[in-house]
Amino acid sequence: MPVIKNGEIVDTPQGEIHTLGSFLETAPNDIEDARAVRLMPDDDPNALEPFLGEIEIIEISFPRYTDGRGYSQAQLLRRRLGYTGELRAVGDVLRDQLLFMVRSGFDAFEIEKPDAAERFAAAVKEMSVFYQPAADGEIGIFARRHA
């Protein structure tokens, strides 16, 4: 499956991606073996806190596009817990959700379509100003008006 990162299709190394349960078992003993983890919607991202400095990839799963829990997981990881590694959206990742995902702190996306890069580029350009501050570091309009 192609992955878009920073707007481009990239090759991703095929290491093991742990479930949260297997990650939490492995990481304390063998962090070398626990660089990638996938969160399901009801997983608590706070559980990753002790290991965030070592993790390279966190995948957040969207089993259905209507399930928006991943946005809160992403915001928590980026803004509250300060995670700086790759945050990848996987599953039912649709073009018209990409902008919300970027704003919530995702920087990588698994997209099935052959023209994924073009779709991504078009989708994230559609809005240029935002009311709320979010995990993408954009300054919200409330503050910009008085900058």
């Binding site: 209507t66 399930d67 928006g68 946005y71 919300f100 009311y131 979010a134 309009i141």
Partner: peptide, 13 residues
């Protein structure tokens, strides 16, 4: 209204 418009975290409740 402004705060909730296209809120990135709360658009798929």
């Amino acid at each position: 209204r402004q705060w909730s418009t296209f809120h990135p975290e709360f658009s798929f409740l």
